[in-house]
Design a protein around this nucleic acid. Sequence first.
RNA 1: GCCUGGGUGGCGGAAUAGGUAGACGCAAGGGACUUAAAAUCCCUUGGGGCUGAGUCCCCGUACGAGUUCGAUUCUCGUCCCAGGCACCA
Length: 863
Amino acid sequence: MQERYDPQAIESKWQRYWEREGLFRVKEEPDREKYYLLEMFPYPSGKIHMGHVRNYTIGDVVARYKRMRGYNVLHPMGWDAFGMPAENAAIANRTHPARWTYDNIAAMREQLKRMGFSYDWDRELATCRPEYYRWEQWLFLKMVEKDMAYRKESYVNWCEDCQTVLANEQVEAGLCWRCGRPVRQKKLWQWFFRITDDAEDLLQWCDRLPGWPEKVTTMQKNWIGKSLGARIHFPIEGSDETIPVFTTRPDTVFGATFMCLAPEHPLVAALSSGTAQQEPVAAFVERILQQERTSQAVESYEKEGVFTGAYCINPMNGLRMPVYTANFALMEYGTGAVMSVPAHDQRDLDFARKYGLDIVVVVRPEDGDLDPATMEEAYVEPGVMTRSGAFDGMDSRRAKEEIPKALAEKGLGEATVNYRLRDWGISRQRYWGAPIPMVHCSRCGVVPVRESDLPVILPEDVDMLEGGRTPLPTLDEFVRTACPRCGTDDARRETDTMDTFVESSWYFERYCSPRWNEGIFDTEAVDYWMPVDQYIGGVEHAILHLLYSRYFTRVLKDFGLVSYKEPFTRLLTQGMVCKETLKCPEHGFLLPEEAEIRDGRAHCLRCDRPAEVGRVEKMSKSKKNVIDPNILLERYGADTTRLFCLFAAPPERDLEWSEQGVEGGARFLNRVWRLFLQHRDRVSSVPAFDGSPDDLTGDVRDLYKKTHQTIRKVTRDIEERFHFNTAIAAVMELVNMLYATEVDLQDELPCRVARHALETVILLLSPVVPHFAEELWAELGNPESLLLAAWPHYREDALEQDEILVVVQVNGKLRSRMTLPADASEDAIREKALSDENVRRFIEGKDLRRVIVVKNKLVNIVV
RNA sequence: GCCUGGGUGGCGGAAUAGGUAGACGCAAGGGACUUAAAAUCCCUUGGGGCUGAGUCCCCGUACGAGUUCGAUUCUCGUCCCAGGCACCA
């Protein structure tokens, strides 16, 4: 056995061994219980970062643990390989997105292998490969067929310079994140998925996901944003048309004195055209659509609007209401029109005051009325109906239900439900994405590509254009095609590609049969493996990715391809990896290696000035508070890196990086190594003791019991809550005890108990530090890989202590401790407590009121 | 503004069917080994008090009340921090 623990040698040796033996390759075995463990697959940015290391370490521990518990564990890895960074990098480095992506994948795969993760690499997939996106295109066609995918014209964030749509998160302070030019709203034809059809079901099932953090389901519920109310139609004066409105306050309809339309609302132009208001309205709309839409910007906007020149009629009281267009009315919520009730909505009140519009109080407090002229705040509480015709005197909460009924009788409204969730727009004017398999024909319109012509392959021999514009529309050989329906050859292909969230919405199914080419997946394999038993990833995907995946699963179920509705039974969202920032007054943020710690202060290596230590923040390139996993691998090896990630904090919490903490992890492994060095010669020639503790005495008996207690503690910590930090702490305690226990190595029985304890340490640590554990396992003389070993069992009869510490309180204050045999009776405990010397000082001369005895725990004497 | 979490030593964090607050680790201090250093091992370490330095006393889990024999844990109120949503009709 090597004197020193040498991680580099050990780790590459065992990684080669695992690969050679194919120990992580799995297939369906119907008579074995499966466990599907999935971590969110990475975007191949080029290098793994600490967030990946943490995420995948957590997952790997669970996978290895479950394997030891006898499950058939599916643990795959792949690449979320389409997306904008590839295009940007390709332009910056004069290479091609495909080239850049595949190179990155190769580099990152190597890094993941060096971490020792137990993936079935035979199942690796990359979403940018035609074999993958072909089935996405196939599903898209199915969805078009069933009207689950459709095309409509809508407003999007548009950057003129980059010639593309930007997602909301790509708009920073109203400017394009890439070129810094202002973003504006542009009307575009886009493809959408009808996720709103499933809004109610997605919402309902939020409460049926007991394995998900409540935080995530709450966020999803808020995102779906269900609200109950009514749809009310306001007839337009001098027209047969009506303006439909959604409101949560149908009880206040009698107080609606004007109407506000979103600037993009189609009626805005229609109503104002030909009136004196046409010009000002057009100018207003133009200006508002150019405005930034970020939350900060929006907050600073004053409520403003312009009269359209038209009126509509309040369907309950027949009053004329001027129709405005206003900046606060949102086209994307409800119907894009707001019935404004200034007496009972603060925003409407502000607007009414500003433009001198009528204010009518229709709900009053029980004990009085309100004066519209002087009221300072809108009255939003429930109350008594007033100035509401037949509803006067009614409780407003009841009127909320009665008024929609009355409206329904007139055919001018009904109770309804509204969702904030919008249909999922999937068109991207990007190159590096899956082509949308549709064709535009001048005669037949928009026509789907024939299924037999799939995949529509993204051409890879293209030159990227400066500015990031997609080259696809300029590629004649791609764009020009025959119409699949009429055959005319002047049809044009759709040149938009799909949102990359589409690929990540079904990759977990594809992993079940990644090479299947007869369909989207082998349903038998999917039936066996799905749903994912445990999904692990960052909370940043709490809404979009997870909601889209849940939606897609419902789509697959509609097509009869899968039998379940929810793809992820349990979800763990791990916290961020954080570190303090270092800032030099001259050189700005410093990388950890650009500073030197001297006299307890950090100094900039370039100018030698003291660097300011900032607060602990999420590791990010811009703040330079990053640790490169490669450096850790070189300096400490994979096992220490893994150990620290798990020990420093429970997985769901943020992890604060600490160099000394890593050192501590390395020190612990060295300590275990030396322990084996001490015992190996004697212990490797005897079998582990696994009998009853009754055959043991003294320290050895205690050690045996501690070993079993540790097994129970570690098993529970992993099984119930994934609290690896406390599990590792428990093993540390056992190791400390092994050091403290004098084992007579000449005597066989103590040797066998020591071997049992040492083996247990290795088995319990093996999911965390697999290479280290394999090496020591072999040193103990075990011929087979640790991967084939079972998780240790604990004996019930070895759990209880022989002696129990019982504490004695007087009036709830701790006064004494005493050690008693575990089987002491309640009376004996009481007796001993009352006669305790220190206790007597506190009860002497006082009335004994009560004595509470909690067996094996404490005595509380009340005087 | 609304919705979630969360406030425990110098630090990361333990302990909640209410029952010894501070496991384990880091840092710090002291000691052993060494010519020396590193490594290692051992001890101390929440704050304060003391006529009897003890199997001693008081205080202490953001703050203030309450329930209880007993509250870090349960209830109510307040403050602070983090995350999410937000002109949502």
